[in-house]
């Protein structure tokens, strides 16, 4: 199985990227390399192997739901590319 250019277009859309034709050609090649990695990994039988998400024995870390200080509105919005008062401003998303 080879990855087609159509797949690259689909993945680029999922990743929210525009790619030039040149980039698309390169990405097609790169995505195909994943298949090579998988071929290698599939040499190993992992039927009874548990996956390791990360290596330390920590699961479900809970904390009390307490009110604590957080960033002020002003600090939070300081880096916004566009704002309107106390809101992040984005292009219209709801059709009229």
């Amino acid at each position: 199985m080879k990855i087609a250019k159509q797949t690259v277009d689909h993945v680029a859309n999922l990743a929210r990227l525009y790619l030039s034709e040149e980039e698309k050609a390169e990405m097609t090649e790169k995505l195909n390399s994943i298949l090579d990695y998988m071929e290698k990994l599939n040499e190993l039988d992992t039927t009874n192997v548990e996956p390791t998400a990360h290596v330390i024995p920590i699961k479900n870390v809970f904390r009390q739901d307490e009110v604590r200080e957080s960033l002020s509105l002003e600090e939070t919005l300081k880096n916004a590319p566009d704002r309107d008062g106390s809101f992040f401003r984005v292009p219209r998303v709801i059709e009229e």
Partner: peptide, 11 residues
């Protein structure tokens, strides 16, 4: 892909 890779990670 991802799950298989995580299993290999165990090994």
């Amino acid at each position: 892909y991802y799950l298989k890779a995580q299993k290999v990670r165990t090994l």
